[in-house]
Design a protein around this nucleic acid. Structure first.
Lengths: 244, 244
DNA sequence: ATCCGGATGTGTCAACTTGACACAAAGGGT
DNA sequence: ACCCTTTGTGTCAAGTTGACACATCCGGAT
């Protein structure tokens, strides 16, 4: 996230005072709205997320998720997509709002309310072209050591991962990270990578079958061992299975 | 929600054009941030929510959840509490962020991004003193016929109710709607009112007991019939029970 | 042609959970 | 003493979950 265009006179006063009424500011002064997006990809059985390194400002050198200010007239989702595209060159297959972080001190420069998003891309062309707006950009394995994060992005990272884990259980969200067709083993490895633990193959197949979201394709993938049946998701839009 | 102090030149252009870049606005023009809170109470076995009627503006006469613009330097939660207090005179026992609605056309006057909250009060003094900022205010049963809602508040209402229902299943969120001590029947009626269906008494007791969030008090409530044992929640903060 | 290696694909059983269901107990009121 | 109404409790069948082992299939090597 890089909140450019923040006028210096709009900095909030964070002088250690208790929750001040914060009304000494100009009458029309208001918090700004940003979006920050946690972009996930599964690469080689590892779950990874994209971070950019800030080039300037008090947080120079710290890392952050792609994001930026929302424009007037712009949908929040569109802002997230726009920032993602301009920062990484990637168009996400899935985008979901997570939570809104509004602590006035989360950004030392100004009061910026940030709507956090989670995005998924189906692996193929993950050629993230580093934006010139940032010092660097790259994929980091998660859960794992991330570089020092700016703002409250460590919170956002935790939140995104837990949401992603939860959604695996009752949606076809995996459809957005996998290619059109895939083997059961690939699906299992995806779940294992995201959940951070291995799964029992038989029980996993039973569970997935019970969800009824898969379609068995009449082809197999041949390799040096027994061929694996190929599957695809029935729907390419998010499906939620009932589980009262 | 009443977004006062919105300068007229800050209206977005909604002229039917496709998702326009929306950049003809002034460089420093940005969406505003508001909070809107769905306040729930259970009264006489009925779930109700508080609405205010707008006094002026293009949506005059429509009803809305209490809310308003966030100030610079203010936490989102604090903004929600402040609006709730100034609108109803009530302090909520529980407050939870739901979702952020950012459609630029949700408010015809300006682009206002609204962070929706759900709040609960433990019934006693629900003497909502109507604020002079609104034409009227009152409790409406939900689910049920609500008056015509402004903005996208019908969406928010649905979202809040479904979140509340879901949380009953795996948290002690009921603690914030009930008095300190209560009978099992009162708890059951609360669940029934919120879920909108009756529950089997024996199965309900089994489930609640399994959650392990209740404490049996050594007193009983005497009435015209068999006395009922009194219970209280062990913790008065939100507890989430594991259910993988 | 046969064998081997390694990944794919399948069934059972015990433990637990869920939903349906009926009757006894405890008071106050008459 | 009896009645009325509400509270409080157990069982059983059906379904679900987690643990567990072995046969199948193909390519490649012998």
């Amino acid at each position: 996230m890089d909140h450019t265009n923040i006028a210096p006179e709009q900095r909030p006063q964070h002088n250690g005072a208790p929750p001040a009424p914060a009304r000494r500011a100009h009458r029309y002064e208001r918090p700004k709205v940003a979006v920050d997006t946690v972009l996930f990809v599964v690469d080689g059985g590892r779950l990874k997320t994209y971070l950019v390194q800030l080039k300037s400002g008090p947080l120079r050198g710290k890392w952050a998720f792609p994001g930026g200010l929302v424009r007037v007239g712009e949908m929040l989702d569109d802002a997230a997509r726009r920032q993602l595209l301009s920062t990484t060159g990637l168009e996400c297959a899935y985008l979901e709002q997570l939570f809104t972080f509004g602590d006035p001190s989360r950004d030392p420069r100004a009061h910026v309310v940030s709507v956090a998003y989670m995005a998924l891309i189906s692996d193929p062309a993950r050629v993230a072209v580093p934006s010139h707006k940032y010092a660097a950009g790259g994929w980091y394995e998660v859960p794992g050591q991330l570089p020092p994060l700016a703002y409250d992005h460590a919170l956002i990272a935790d939140y995104a991962l837990s949401r992603l884990k939860a959604k695996l259980a009752y949606t076809n969200i995996a459809a957005f990270v996998l290619p059109k067709s895939f083997t059961f083993k690939e699906l299992e490895d995806l779940y294992a990578a995201i959940l951070g633990r291995s799964l029992d193959r038989r029980n996993f197949r039973r569970r997935i079958a019970a969800m009824g979201l898969l379609k068995k394709l009449p082809v197999k993938r041949y390799g040096p061992h027994r061929p694996a049946g190929l599957y695809s998701f029935r729907k390419q839009t998010l499906q939620v299975v009932q589980m009262l």
